[in-house]
Design a protein around this nucleic acid. Structure first.
Lengths: 215, 215
DNA sequence: GCGAAAATACGCAACATTGCGTATTTCGTG
DNA sequence: CACGAAATACGCAATGTTGCGTATTTTCGC
């Protein structure tokens, strides 16, 4: 069962979204919050959430700020933006803040369902209009000179997940909590990461991972 | 019925892809071509094709060149790249040539299925690994530096020096040694840095400093 | 189904980091 | 000169990290 949260200030829209999501038996709607501050309070009590659908314009704390905080503190939670705006700046801000996808508000249920699965699989779900903008952005960005083929340190999927959380400054305990494994297991993963990267502390690992294109 | 074409030189892979596509009754496999030159000959006779799944590395005419030609001549045809390579340059070339999506070769049937629909709807279907790269590209080309640069954390010169050394993974003792101050002083600087950046560990400080343009 | 690789988990011990309090000295500005 | 900000410095206690050993369970390809 995939745990979903909706963050949206306009009740009518939140209800519509809820209805669309509940059409599928794969999803459980865990939280509905009216703004960023509220969802963070809820997550502090229980962060067992897979995907958050986040509005951008909200009172109290907007979607960008909230996404910044959440993606820092619980990096394993996937955040998909939902907005009526399809401009470049909002897309940028969303992506920079840690969102993995961006949907416009009038999407049909099937598209929303697919987007949630895509987000979970590490994809980048977007509405057609947004995809067009994203494509333009990628095409505009200059062809990178340093296509320095990354070394393959043979990190496993799980190790990369741990490394990502390490790089955000989370403690072993927080990482264990986020990934639903024990403190001891996190420690073992970290040991293996350090051995593979040939470093002996967190900062060295991050440095090497960033230079090697892992992060 | 959605008309599909496969362009792939390795018979084994082409057959595997064909099998995956034929799992769905929505798709009709119209053409299988071994290279870019061949698919173009076929399209010249009959271009009633909705989506082409195009390999990149092929003899005669590679996928990038072929995509360039096809997207120019039959712009309504959606082209999704398929490759074993997940590097930035190939992604970039593919997007420039007119492809709308990029899949890695080992995708499961459902993902391919979804990707074809997404392509038709104007989306940007990508494998998880590719989505990650695309996200990096977008983030790199960010014009919105001003969003973060607004915040001045009021770090002093000395604090920035300490922060720089912190970010390289040096211990307090090494930093003290490098800056000709005592261990205790380094600690105090670190405390002040963390307070100003509102973090409580080294990695969090580095993360924030990098995002905020301090480092 | 066998075997290898990965993921899970814990204990011990050494060492490093962090938070808080306190205090003195240095330096530039009004 | 007086003031405040910055830099210097140390002690204590709590917490976090790292390295090493060991061990079981799970997953995946052959």
């Amino acid at each position: 069962m995939i745990q979903i949260a909706i963050v949206e200030d306009i009740t009518r829209i939140a209800e519509a979204l809820k209805a669309k999501i509940l059409l599928s038996p794969d999803f459980k709607l865990k939280f509905i919050a009216p703004n960023g501050a509220e969802i963070i309070k809820l997550l502090e009590r229980d962060h067992n959430v897979d995907v958050i659908i986040m509005d951008i314009n909200m009172p109290e704390m907007n979607g960008i700020e909230a996404t910044n905080l959440i993606s820092q503190r619980w990096p394993q939670i996937k955040i998909v933006m939902s907005s009526v705006f399809d401009d470049e700046q909002n897309l940028f801000d969303a992506m920079l803040s840690g969102a993995c996808g961006y949907l416009l508000k009038d999407e049909v249920p099937q598209k929303i369902h697919r987007s949630i699965f895509e987000a979970l699989e590490g994809g980048m779900p977007m509405s057609a209009m947004i995809a067009k903008k994203a494509l333009q952005l990628i095409r505009k960005s200059s062809p990178s000179q340093n296509v320095q083929d990354q070394f393959d340190y043979h990190l496993t999927e799980r190790e990369i997940q741990v490394l990502e959380q390490l790089s955000k400054g989370l403690s072993y305990e927080q990482i264990a909590d986020n990934l639903f494994i024990s403190y001891g297991t996190v420690r073992k993963h970290v040991e293996n990461i350090y051995r593979k990267l040939e470093v002996n502390n967190r900062t060295g690992a991050i440095d090497k991972a960033q230079k090697g294109g892992i992060l």
